[in-house]
Amino acid sequence: MQYLVQLLISGLAIGAIYGLIAMGFALIYKSTGLVNFAQGEMTMIVAYIAWSISTSVDGNPFIVAIGAIIAAVALGLVVERVVMRPMLGEPVFATVMVTIGLAVILRSSINFIWDAYPHDLDIGFGRGILRAGGIGIRTGQIAVIATLLALLAAIWAFFRYSKFGVAMRAVAADDRTALLMGISAPRVHAAAWAASSVIAGIAGVFFAISYDLSPAMFQLGLKAFPATILGGLDAVLGSGVGGLLIGITENLAGGYLGSGMKEVAGFLMIIVVLMVRPFGIFGERDIERV
């Protein structure tokens, strides 16, 4: 029993990180219809910026958090304005490839600006271990699960009640009609990129606190793919939940079937789920007309 509980807790902790990145994917897909292949890279860049800030201000968690959020917003806005906006109206496929080009640039910038050594993001928080009945969890892992849940609630409320949230939903549903209703699509896109960058950045910072900071961190993006597919590419909240499901599945597979199964468990799961629901668990079915 203790074994199972420990597996579930660890699964939730890593799943929360996948879930955050997956929400970043879904936010962009929902408002722009694109899959951002540079999501993992953006996660990594924000984490590195947070590390740079932490080394210069002696790891004060508040300054690091505020600095990282500002940096993430700036990164999202710059990417949207400089790289993505000019591609408006071009074929979706070409635009998706642009994000792959962006991923190459961001990935290389790590070794260019920083270096290839693993680093330690220490903001004096998240390293402590809580123990209860032989089960251990780090405070940082509790914090990331809590952050994910809080964000899920906040985003639900945002889309449901705020004017801008409704505008984003309108653009996602039908951008031309939304335009006619006086909603600025570019502004909605910019907001989506900035928000996606912040959410991914939060995941990156938590990952760096619990594990390490290295130029291989971009692979997290690939790991979060199954989460967002499972939840539904256009379901922001569903993707967050999808992350938790993938995290738990991976750990249960690793714990009971052996470590070889761990990394493919998530992928096997999405194949099975997609065969039943081809648009993800929480995704919306497209109605096609000829």
Partner: peptide, 13 residues
């Protein structure tokens, strides 16, 4: 490698 990414983006643009 960064230049490689830039060329791809410019090309698609």
């Amino acid at each position: 490698s960064m230049l490689y990414g830039v060329v791809i983006i410019l090309f698609l643009r």
